Each structure stands twice: as structure tokens, then as C-alpha cells.
Simulated assay, not measured.
Amino acid sequence: MQVVSISSLKGGVGKTSVTLGLASAALAAGIPTLVVDLDPHADATTGLGVRPSRQDDIGRMLRNPRRADPASHVAPSGWVATAKQEHSPGRQVLDVAFGSAYTGIYDRPDLRRRDLVRLVKVLSDVTGYALVLIDCPPSLNGLTRMAWMASDRVLLVAEPSLFSVAGTERTMRALDLFREEFAPDLVTAGVVANRVRAGSSEHMYRMAEMRTMFGEQLLEPTIAEQANWQQIQGAAHSIHQWPGESARQAAATFDELLKHFTDSGRRRRQPAQPEAKLAEAGSTSG
């Protein structure tokens, strides 16, 4: 099972849109996928067509991770009911550990170190998926660090703009520090450029800057600005199900980006070692 966090320390760059695009590509390819919506705004949950129910949201599962029983509390995406079966001859699986404002209690910088393994514990009982996508909040507080602790890879999302590029560089430095202290096996999946306008001289300048700064870590293809993306998300539809040439091209882009994760043989590490390490650290730090 491949666990991938989609992260950005700057809001408004389309991080959730990238999560939804990758989930759409996984559904179309017939890859059993779980989306974990860690952002307290729960926009990924809305975009995936999931409505709140009596099941526990991810925040409540984090509160009691040893008793979480995620198999009983994940919800099927609304996309599955309308997915075109010709994309995949088998059973299509796209489930959601849905988000809520409740997760905000963990999105703070002063979490004890042993709390960082809460999501590791929740996911340790998850089976039946080939891919887990974690939509992180745009901060480096507790929720993002929980996600990184539970992940094999972190995908960074950036727009071709000054502040976004600078924020991405800060995120990469933060990842290096986190990897050194907590998760030596954590891999940077790369940087995906989102909302790129080929006709914008500013965007082309920033893209050249990103290629210089990030080199091979800047992934191809880039994601072009999608004029009707808000309409697609508002309708709670998969990009692969939306009509029109621009949606078809965007779907093909996400199909290519998904290969960066599905072509890899890396798997999520077992939680025992980091949990023991953090528990020991937490007992000494109080």
C-alpha cells in the first residue's frame, strides 16, 4: 500500500484539487484508493461527494486511534456510483476517511512527539487499498506532521508565482528536517506545478525558476489552469467523468502524474519502530 501526502505550506495553490485529480485517475484506473481528508475545511470530502453521517470522521478516529476501526467509518465516494465501468472491468473502490472541523484540535505546533503516530496507528489497520492519498492542511502544524509520519512519499504542490515558489522551497527544507529527526525513509515525491498558464510571461518565468531550483524534482506534466474546475468540484464530479476537451486533457495529465506513485515498489513502513522511538522521545520531553 502506497501512502502519499499532498502538501503545501501556502494556501490557495490548488492542493485539494490535485488530490481530487489523482483520486479521479486512480478510480478510472481501477486502483483501490482511500482518501484521508486531514484539512479541517474538509473540501476534499465535499468534492468527493461525501456527506457527513453517523460514522466517525478522521478527527475522531485520531482521538482514539487504537479503537478507530477505519473499515467501519470510511465512506464510499459519490463518484463511484457514476463512474464509467469501461475504464475498469473490476470493482471500483474510492473510499474517504472524511474530514471535519474537529480535526482542527490537532492542527497546532505544540503536539507531543508521541502524538505524531496517531495517524500511523489508524492506518495500520487499513487493508484492501493499493493507494492512500492524504490531503493535508496548508500549514506545518500537527496534522501535516502526522500525515508525513504515516506516509511513504510527500507530493508538493506549487503555483508558478513568487510566494508559492518560495513557500515550496521552505516546505522542502522542512521535509529535510522532519526526515532527519523522525522519518529517514520518507521520500519527496516531487513538486507538481498547478494552474499553469502557457500564455503568461510571469508563469513561464516562474516555471524556468522552478526548473533551476528543483531540477528533476519538478514533475512532468504540469497541470494547466482549468477554467471550469470550480464547476466540476461544485458538482462533486470526477474530472474523468466531465465532458469536454479541456477536462479530457486534464484527466490525461493526472493519469500521467499518478504513474509517479503506482510505478514505484515502495511501501509504507511498519509503525512499530517510529512509534517506539517517538514514545521514548515523548517520555523524556514531557
Score class of each variant (00 low, 15 high):
70 P>Q: 06
75 A>H: 01
55 Q>N: 14
54 R>S: 14
57 D>A: 03
90 G>F: 06
70 P>F: 07
49 G>Q: 10
56 D>G: 01
64 N>P: 00
81 A>M: 13
78 G>Q: 12
68 A>N: 05
76 P>N: 07
47 G>A: 04
42 A>K: 02
86 E>F: 10
85 Q>Y: 01
47 G>Q: 05
71 A>L: 11
73 H>C: 02
60 R>H: 14
89 P>M: 09
88 S>L: 00
64 N>M: 07
83 A>G: 05
62 L>P: 00
48 L>M: 09
65 P>V: 09
84 K>G: 00
47 G>R: 05
61 M>S: 02
48 L>W: 03
83 A>T: 12
42 A>T: 04
40 P>S: 07
88 S>V: 02
41 H>W: 01
73 H>E: 13
71 A>T: 12
66 R>F: 08
80 V>G: 03
40 P>Y: 09
60 R>D: 01
53 S>Q: 03
90 G>E: 13
90 G>H: 11
77 S>C: 06
62 L>N: 02
59 G>R: 10
42 A>V: 04
76 P>D: 10
49 G>L: 10
50 V>N: 01
88 S>G: 11
79 W>P: 01
82 T>I: 12
67 R>A: 15
82 T>L: 09
66 R>Q: 14
68 A>V: 04
80 V>E: 04
64 N>W: 11
92 Q>R: 15
76 P>M: 09
